[in-house]
C-alpha cells in the first residue's frame, strides 16, 4: 500500500482527497449529523402522532361524527370531528373504546389485511385503500341496500363477515372468517383511522374531478 506519496503530489498534506481517511471522516460526520437530526425529528413526530396528539385523535373519537372537508387555509382536506354519533348506537368510555380499537388492530394483523389493502397508502394494492373507508359512499349507496342493513356500521359488519357474498365487481374480497365481535372491532378501527389527520391524503376523497 502506498503511504504518503500521494500527499506530496497534492501539495497539501492533511487535506488529501485521494486519501481514504479524508472521506472516512466525511462519512462518519455526515452520518452522525443526520442521525442526530432524525432523532430530534422522531421525538417531535411521536408527540404529534401519539394518541391524543395534534394529528391523531383519542380512540373514543368513535363516539363522534367524522367528516373530511377541504380546509382553505391549509389548502387540503382535513378530518372534521363533529357532534356525538355513537358507534352501533352505544357511547363507549375511553377504556372501552381503546380495548375495541386494539382488538380491531389485532384483526387487521392476524388476517393480513395489509397484504391486499393499503392503510394510509401503505400495504398492497389488490384492494382499495382503507384510510377513509369509513367515509366511503359505497356503504350507503351499495352495501346498505345489498345487505339490507339500516346503518353504515351494520352494513360494514355484514360485509366484513361475508365479503364473498356481497361483491361489487369481479375482484371480490375473500371470506376471512371474522366473528361478529371481530368485525365490530374492525369497524371501530376504520372509524378511528378516518379521523387521523394525514396532511390531505387521499385528496378529493369522494369528489370526482373533471378532466383538466
Amino acid at each position: 500500500m502506498k503511504v504518503e506519496g500521494a500527499t506530496t503530489h497534492e501539495g497539501r498534506a492533511g487535506l488529501d482527497m485521494t486519501d481514504p481517511r479524508f472521506w472516512r471522516a466525511g462519512a462518519i460526520s455526515t452520518t452522525l449529523v443526520m442521525l442526530v437530526v432524525l432523532a430530534f425529528l422522531s421525538v417531535d413526530s411521536m408527540r404529534v402522532i401519539s394518541v391524543g396528539g395534534a394529528h391523531v385523535p383519542r380512540y373514543d373519537v368513535v363516539n363522534r361524527h367524522i367528516g373530511y372537508q377541504y380546509d382553505w387555509s391549509r389548502r387540503e382536506d382535513v378530518p372534521v370531528i363533529g357532534a356525538p354519533e355513537p358507534l352501533f348506537g352505544r357511547t363507549l368510555t375511553e377504556a372501552q373504546a381503546t380495548a375495541l380499537v386494539r382488538e380491531g388492530k389485532l384483526v387487521i394483523q392476524s388476517r393480513a389485511c395489509m397484504d391486499c389493502h393499503t392503510f394510509f397508502g401503505n400495504g398492497a394494492y389488490y384492494g382499495p385503500d382503507l384510510t377513509k373507508s369509513w367515509l366511503d359512499p359505497a356503504w350507503p349507496q351499495i352495501w346498505m341496500p345489498m345487505t339490507g342493513k339500516p346503518t353504515r356500521e351494520e352494513a360494514m359488519v355484514a360485509f366484513l363477515m361475508n365479503p364473498d357474498q356481497y361483491p361489487t365487481w369481479t375482484r371480490a374480497m375473500p371470506n376471512l372468517h371474522l366473528t361478529e365481535r371481530e368485525a365490530r372491532a374492525t369497524v371501530a378501527y376504520l372509524k378511528w383511522m378516518s379521523a387521523v389527520d394525514t396532511n390531505g391524503f387521499p385528496a378529493n376523497f369522494g369528489k370526482t374531478q373533471t378532466q383538466q
Binding site: P128, S133, P137, A203, K207
Partner: peptide, 15 residues
Amino acid sequence: RAIGGSTLMAFTQAS
C-alpha cells in the same frame, strides 16, 4: 386518484 377521488368506485373504475 386525481379524477376519481380515491373511493372504492374510483379504485374499481381505474382498475
